[in-house]
């Protein structure tokens, strides 16, 4: 096993075709960094949209009103049942379907606002719509699982105190559902970070597309893919750490005492908080 690791490392370091010097040259290239920023923007915006949409859809799906629950079910069916790549392309070519987007009274009423679809739906907007709306469908199921994980007694107690269905959701159920919702949401965020690379098909210069543009010029394909991979790995690592602290925050009240963070554990070892008095002659005298 160790031998296998050693051989792999040796091959990665010694194989000149990895071109590690080129990797170093392009790691902080402006175009790569711009792509990185766009990737981050897309991830954050699409996840934010997905979470808001997901909470809304989950609450709707659990509504006693069959029409409301059905609408949410239909949305999830539609957006979960088609590939996100196809959805991205659809949004990108939406202008072919609806050349003009306008707000007004339907069926021949007055028009208040109108815009050309091609100018409104830029590739970035299309990417955001595609990723965010798709994510909403997945988040809806995650949030629903979280809500269902909260004991029925919590609903009853809240109702018996006169709280409405929405108050109960917002103040009592959702905060407790977070404990179950966060781990898969962290998973989704990491997945989203990587799914943004699909956006390269609609010519949005996120991290992967930026790398592709560069290697289309200089043919250093492998090193530039490594550059992109390093950044994806780095961001994933940051997200994982963030998730740990978020989970810890919402774990309040479920465990009797919060576990120490790795950093706290480290500092306790280096600087013992309670210096143990081995012998304290004065204390026993009093």
């Amino acid at each position: 096993m160790l031998l296998l690791v050693a051989v792999s490392i040796d091959s990665i370091v010694s194989n000149p075709r990895f071109e590690w010097d080129v990797v170093g040259d392009y790691l902080f290239d402006d175009r790569i960094l711009d792509g990185l920023v766009l990737t981050l923007e897309l991830t954050v915006a699409a996840m934010a949209a997905g979470i808001v949409l997901g909470v809304l859809l989950a609450v709707m799906r659990l509504s006693p009103n069959p029409l409301v629950a059905g609408a949410s079910g239909f949305y999830i069916w539609l957006f979960r049942g088609t590939p996100v790549l196809v959805q991205l392309l659809f949004w990108n070519f939406i202008a072919a379907l609806y050349p003009e987007i306008s707000i007004g009274v339907p069926f021949g009423g007055p028009e208040f606002f109108s815009i050309q679809a091609n100018s409104a739906i830029t590739p970035f907007v299309a990417a955001l719509l595609g990723l965010g709306l798709n994510e909403g469908a997945y988040m809806a199921e995650i949030v629903r699982a979280g809500i269902l994980s909260v004991d029925e007694g919590q609903h009853q107690a809240a109702h018996s105190l006169g709280m409405s269905r929405l108050q109960t959701m917002r103040r009592i159920v959702l905060p407790q559902a977070m404990r179950v919702i966060i781990p898969p949401t962290g998973n989704e965020t990491i997945s989203m970070l990587k799914t943004t690379s699909l956006v390269s098909v609609i010519a949005t210069a996120e991290l992967l597309y930026a790398a592709q543009l560069i290697y289309a010029e200089n043919y250093r394909t492998i090193p530039l893919l490594i550059v992109a991979s390093i950044w994806y790995l780095a961001l994933t690592t940051v997200l994982t750490i963030g998730q740990y602290y978020l989970e810890r925050h919402f774990g309040r009240g479920s465990a009797r005492e919060l576990p120490l963070t790795p950093w706290q554990r480290f500092t306790r070892i280096v600087v013992p908080r309670h210096a143990e008095p081995a012998t304290e002659p004065e204390a026993s005298g009093r």
């Binding site: 009853q156 107690a157 109702h159 407790q176």
Partner: peptide, 19 residues
């Protein structure tokens, strides 16, 4: 909900809000 607010209820399993 308004009517329920005037009636207190205590449950077998307490149902305190855990968070």
């Amino acid at each position: 909900a308004r009517n329920r607010a005037e009636i207190g209820m205590v449950f077998q399993h307490f149902n305190l809000f855990g968070h």
